[in-house]
Computed example of a mutant assay.
Amino acid sequence: MCSDKNIYKNINKTSKVKKIEKKRRRLQRQISRKYELNREGRSYKKTSNIKKLEKELLKVNQRLTNIRHNYLHQTTTEIINRKPIFIVLESLNVVGMMKNKHLAKAIQQQCFYEFYRQIQYKCLWNNIKFIEADRFYPSSKTCSECGSVKKQLKLSEREYICEECGCVIDRDYNVSVNLMKYGQSIA
């Protein structure tokens, strides 16, 4: 979500991507079963049918990658084409987030670094100031109205409720406004 209330959908939750993911899982299971059927002692025999299936699996994997990268390019280009004065992204502890077994797959599919890299080079091309917020900047815990910092904030809380001023705001929008203010203070 951007500070001008533009929301970008998660490409991995679309029916098209889910359908291709399902096809990939089925192909992987099919290949695994073929390998088990053609097992000779401790070694596996690779038949021509297995080679065909593996080739098809590679195509499906490449298609998924292409869809994700295309969406990233479209999103970053759309953000840059709005001609902002500056763009602020916060540096995230992706390695730490990947340790959460429930979120690891979803985080991996988002391609955070690729998004960061594309925004960075497109800002350079278009003479837009690129600012990176420190990973310890409390962008999600700070109220965008009064500036008070909340001590505890769970990931499941999707609305930010300020204890000081009583402001109720969408959590992602609150973060984008805080990052905009951070950028204004630096720029």
Score class of each variant (00 low, 15 high):
78 E>D: 15
79 I>Y: 03
79 I>W: 01
79 I>Q: 00
79 I>N: 00
80 I>R: 00
80 I>K: 01
82 R>K: 15
83 K>A: 10
86 F>A: 08
86 F>I: 02
86 F>D: 00
87 I>N: 00
88 V>N: 00
89 L>Y: 03
90 E>M: 03
91 S>E: 15
92 L>V: 09
92 L>Q: 03
92 L>D: 06
92 L>F: 07
93 N>W: 05
93 N>M: 04
94 V>C: 07
94 V>F: 09
94 V>M: 12
94 V>S: 02
94 V>Y: 06
95 V>R: 15
95 V>G: 02
96 G>V: 12
96 G>L: 12
97 M>Q: 14
97 M>P: 04
97 M>F: 11
98 M>E: 14
98 M>K: 15
99 K>W: 10
99 K>Y: 10
100 N>C: 11
101 K>N: 15
102 H>T: 13
102 H>A: 12
103 L>R: 05
105 K>E: 14
105 K>I: 09
105 K>S: 15
106 A>I: 05
107 I>K: 03
107 I>V: 14
107 I>M: 08
108 Q>D: 14
109 Q>H: 11
110 Q>D: 08
112 F>L: 12
113 Y>F: 15
115 F>V: 00
115 F>I: 03
116 Y>N: 10
118 Q>G: 04
119 I>A: 05
120 Q>W: 01
121 Y>I: 13
122 K>L: 09
122 K>Y: 05
123 C>A: 11
123 C>R: 00
123 C>K: 01
125 W>S: 09
127 N>C: 07
127 N>R: 07
127 N>F: 04
128 I>N: 03
128 I>M: 08
129 K>D: 07
129 K>T: 14
129 K>Q: 13
130 F>K: 02
131 I>M: 05
132 E>Q: 13
133 A>T: 05
133 A>C: 09
134 D>Q: 11
134 D>F: 03
136 F>N: 14
137 Y>T: 06
138 P>C: 08
139 S>L: 10
139 S>R: 07
139 S>N: 11
139 S>Q: 10
139 S>C: 12
140 S>Y: 02
140 S>R: 04
140 S>K: 02
140 S>P: 04
141 K>P: 01
142 T>C: 05
142 T>Y: 01
143 C>N: 06
144 S>A: 13
144 S>R: 01
